[in-house]
Amino acid sequence: MHKKIYKPLFTLLACLMAITLWAQPTGDTSKVEMADRFRADGKIYVVIAVLVTILLGLFIYVIRLDRKITKLEKDFNNK
C-alpha cells in the first residue's frame, strides 16, 4: 500500500535537486576565499558520502526502533 507513496516523494526529491541546479549563481566575482580547490579535486563527494552514510545509518536505527515499538504495541493490544 505504501508503494504508491514512494513515487511522489522521490519525484519531490528530484524536483528539489532541479531547483537547486536552476538556482546556481551566474558567476561569483568576489575575491572571498572559498574551498574551490577542494571542490575541483572532487573530494567534496567523499564528505557527502560519509555524511549521507551516517544519516542513513541513523535513519535505519530509528526505523528499527519504530518497528520494535510498533511490535510491542501490537503484542500489548492482543493480550
Binding site: 507513496i5 514512494y6 516523494l9 522521490f10 519531490l12 526529491l13 528539489l16 535537486m17 537547486t20 538556482a23 546556481q24 549563481p25 561569483d28 568576489s30 572571498v32 576565499e33 572559498m34 574551498a35 567534496i44 564528505v47 557527502i48 555524511l51 549521507v52 544519516l55 542513513l56 535513519f59 526505523i63 519504530d66
Partner: peptide
C-alpha cells in the same frame, strides 16, 4: 517519516554541493 528522510538526504547533498554566497569570515 519517508518524507523526513528524503528531505534530510536532500539537505545533506544539496547543502554541500550547492553553491553559496561568498562572504568574508564566514567562507564555507
Amino acid at each position: 517519516k519517508i518524507l523526513c528522510g528524503v528531505l534530510l538526504v536532500y539537505t545533506f547533498i544539496a547543502g554541500f554541493l550547492g553553491s553559496v554566497p561568498a562572504k568574508p569570515i564566514l567562507n564555507e
